[in-house]
């Protein structure tokens, strides 16, 4: 699928994650900032990658600023940010959910 615009979801509150999705040219790039990167960085990146692949994104830049969010939060924020970037947030993407 094609990213139409840069879009964002999430806050910088504790236990949340802010995810910004923008156009990319060179595969799926994830830039993660997190206080728990040493302990959970791979998990967080894998969760976001999985969502990106559910939406069949091949080229995308994703910036994630994590404040200790749990997996379910990361997934929800990623889905919303990606749908906003795709311009289809009005239609739930059932396959991806």
């Amino acid at each position: 699928m094609e990213i139409k615009k840069t879009a964002m979801d999430g806050t910088l509150e504790s236990s949340d994650i802010q995810i910004t999705v923008s156009k990319g040219t060179n595969g799926v790039n994830i830039d993660l900032t997190s206080d728990v990167k040493e302990r959970f960085g791979d998990d967080i990146i894998a969760t976001i990658k999985k969502v990106a692949s559910d939406f069949q994104l091949d080229n995308v830049n994703i910036k994630a600023v994590d404040q200790g969010a749990l997996d379910c939060v990361i997934k929800a924020r990623a889905i919303t940010a990606i749908q906003r970037a795709l311009g289809n947030s009005e239609e739930p993407a059932w396959e991806a959910l």
Binding site: E38, R39, F40, G41, D42, D43, L70, D71
Partner: peptide
């Protein structure tokens, strides 16, 4: 179960 498995620190 809530947070997942931690990677050991280096």
């Amino acid at each position: 179960k809530i947070v997942g498995k931690e990677e050991p620190l280096k």
